[in-house]
Write a protein that binds this DNA or RNA. Structure first.
Lengths: 328, 328
DNA sequence: TTGTATGCGTTATCAT
DNA sequence: ATGATAACGCATACAA
């Protein structure tokens, strides 16, 4: 591998001049610039970026922490982030935490060892106090989810508004008895969404019964189970806010098998607008989350921070959109 | 940030001794080892990995080239790869090529600039001759797809066997007129799959008509279009090998809308076993690809290569599996 | 406009 | 068992 020294020797100039050409410095005569260029060409020289990083104390790589990539929400999020990273020639390191506290810290340590220049949390299990101390080693920001009390930039989706909007839609369709499903996990997003639902109910003089709240709702299988739980109730909801397209799908599929008409006998609202939502028959009404948008914004901000911008405790909130199909 | 020098000073020892402790070298007395340990602790010292990389000329980061992450096949592939990388404390850099030749080369240049230690191609648009020259900068291997003439380790799925197996299944179900869909792109995988189909037909004394081959089949929308193309034929196939669950889904959905019974009037075989395949009604019979397995194998091999193993021109081929549901 | 000297934080070589 | 010193490849303060 040719080094800057080799280029300098071949060009009959100093390393400094070569370095100046590499970094497009002014005060290099056009003549010498050409000499250096051709020497680099001739030797197939490219600067060693590891040496550059050591010297300049910069690191243009960003780690993104997500639970797992096989979750479409996160793969789409990272997709958008990588687009921006590539645009700025930044590297994107993927870190699957499997929702594990220790895994998160493991990756945060990479910030300490200078293996990465910054960290974007797309989900987080640790308390802010345990993450905070890593800020001294590089920028940290949150995209999508964040622990309570976070003192770092946050870009997220307005789950409260999403919960409100979805519920209002069901109310406008004439429903007064509305059920709700949520995964067992209790993060800020899920809590906010539920707050939105309750707020919308309250604003219309309605409320939710304890019986109409279904938990452990993760996938299609859970949806099937929940269908039966709903049907077993004496006083049952006429609409369900599922919080997940998979769960909605499960309920709808089971309803069809049992001859329960959707949406006449049971309206079902999904969440996320995953591809299946539009493909099902009936199509699933759902709440679309502009994932790509927050992904891009988060990466843009991170790059500015790594390049020397200073973090402000800003919270960016993007609204969700309602997509009405046949299931409501 | 504390450096090795700071630790040495505090411990009243030399940098060399501290370095020895860091790297678990023998010939360090237990006493001094403790002294160093507590000094490191006290200063919150961690070695600067950039400096380590420069000094040792090693780089434990792997770049994975894929078309795009939002394609579930690839997100599951990378998921598996990251599991292995994390196990060995390697970093995984995600590179979306958007199926662009230039993008691939752009990322390959990272190998040259020492930003990464090795490259795994999960798809590739460039010819082997254009990739070959980068081998001198670090290990390169192919997982899933590879250009003709590749002289590097290859781990892939036996598409020919998959094509054969799927076709044979349809034949066993009594079909003699079998249609075939493929995306416009012509890569080795798609070609091999088609070879498998023709081979199976030939082995049973059958053949395919030009009319029964449908191209530009990427997604559900295309499936819908293809349904009508099939129905418009005077002599039409009674079964279709779609090469994609999305396309299969599109055909099935359109068939249902038009009252065409699946599988009685038209049997449909998918490919990939994406989640939707099992959730649809009727469930889609499909060809499952052990994506996780090749992902893990590829990353294991890459890590061995980066750690100094020498690449052998080995080809690892994994078989596909048939999943029979209701659509055939 | 160009060059000299120094240091980024490590590890490896060679003494002792 | 421990330490002094050089080297990895580069960029920059300073000098000329």
């Amino acid at each position: 591998m040719a080094t800057i020294e080799d280029v300098a020797r071949l060009a009959g100039l100093s390393r400094t001049t070569v370095s100046r050409v590499i970094n497009n410095h002014p005060y290099v005569s056009e003549e010498k610039r050409q000499t250096v260029r051709s020497a680099m060409e001739q030797l197939g020289y490219v600067p060693n970026s590891i040496a550059q990083r050591l010297r300049t104390q910069t690191n243009e790589t960003v780690a993104v922490l997500i639970p797992r990539l096989s979750n479409p929400f996160f793969s789409h999020l990272v997709d958008a982030m990588e687009d921006i990273a590539a645009l700025y020639r930044f590297q994107l390191i993927i870190c699957q935490t499997k929702s594990g506290k220790e895994r998160e810290i493991l990756y945060l340590d990479w910030l300490k060892t200078r293996q990465i220049g910054g960290v974007i949390f797309a989900s987080s299990e640790n308390d802010w106090q345990d993450i905070k101390r890593y800020q001294q080693y590089g920028p940290i920001l949150f995209c999508n989810e964040y622990p309570p009390g976070t003192e770092a930039p946050i870009i997220h989706l307005d789950q409260l508004q999403g919960g409100y909007m979805g519920t209002q839609h069901l109310i406008e369709r004439g429903h007064t008895k509305i059920g709700y499903c949520y995964s067992g996990r209790q993060n800020t997003n899920i809590r906010d969404r539920f707050k939105g639902l309750k707020l919308a109910l309250k604003d219309h003089g309605l409320s939710i019964k304890e019986d109409w709240i279904f938990k452990d709702a993760y996938d299609t299988k859970d949806g099937g189970r929940i269908y039966y739980e709903i049907m077993a109730l004496k006083d049952r909801p006429t609409a369900v806010f599922t919080g997940s397209d998979e769960v909605a799908l499960g309920i709808i599929a089971e309803a069809r098998r049992n001859g329960t008409h959707v949406p006449k006998e049971l309206a079902v609202l999904g969440f996320d607008d995953q591809p299946i939502a539009g493909l099902m028959d009936p199509g699933i009404s759902t709440v679309y989350q502009p994932v790509k948008d927050i992904g891009k914004m988060a990466m843009e901000l991170m790059i500015q921070l790594i390049r020397g911008g200073h973090p402000v405790q800003q919270i960016t909130e993007l609204p969700l959109h309602l997509i009405v199909r046949a299931s409501t």
